[in-house]
């Protein structure tokens, strides 16, 4: 059984780490970070929570199925590559909003792509960790 310390830590770390992962994602274009790193941080946060409280509760917190996250991520990335075609630009050319959004900064198709990467990484890591953790739980019971 996971210790009380782990449980308490996981509960408080989850929102903090998630916030941090979004921060890492957003600033990735200008500072170290990005979709891969941010996704890994977020996945670690959920994985920690899942190990502390059980996979079922972790799933309830996330709400969206991990495998759906993979699909959504791939779709977002794919859409971002196709959007320029509607502006009569080449495939994957970057399109940017004229004005930066507050808190997020300049928004363009590369950001959408990075968001897709983020979601794929979260989805894949959680699929792997939760699948394996669940097996262990069923045996322990």
């Amino acid at each position: 059984m996971p210790s009380l310390i782990l449980k308490t830590a996981a509960r408080y770390l989850l929102p903090l780490l998630l916030l941090f992962s979004v921060f890492v994602l957003l600033r990735g274009h200008n500072e170290p970070g990005g979709g891969f790193t941010g996704g890994l941080v977020a996945a670690s946060a959920f994985a920690l929570y899942g190990i502390a409280y059980g996979v079922d509760r972790a799933r309830q917190v996330i709400r969206i199925s991990n495998r759906d996250l993979i699909g959504i991520g791939l779709l977002l990335a794919a859409i971002s590559t196709l959007l320029p075609l509607f502006f009569r630009d080449a495939f994957m050319e970057g399109e940017w909003l004229a004005y930066p959004l507050p808190a997020i900064g300049k928004v363009g198709t590369p950001f959408l792509f990075d968001l897709g990467v983020y979601l794929v990484v979260v989805g894949v890591v959680l699929t792997i960790v939760f699948t394996l953790a669940e097996e262990q739980e069923t045996v322990e019971m």
Binding site: F36, L40, V121, V124, V125, I128, L132
Partner: peptide, 17 residues
């Protein structure tokens, strides 16, 4: 390398299973 590291993780997990 960045993508290689992440993919390495996926491959390692798949190989394990």
């Amino acid at each position: 390398i960045l993508t290689a590291i992440v993919i390495g993780f996926g491959v390692m997990a798949f190989a394990l299973v």
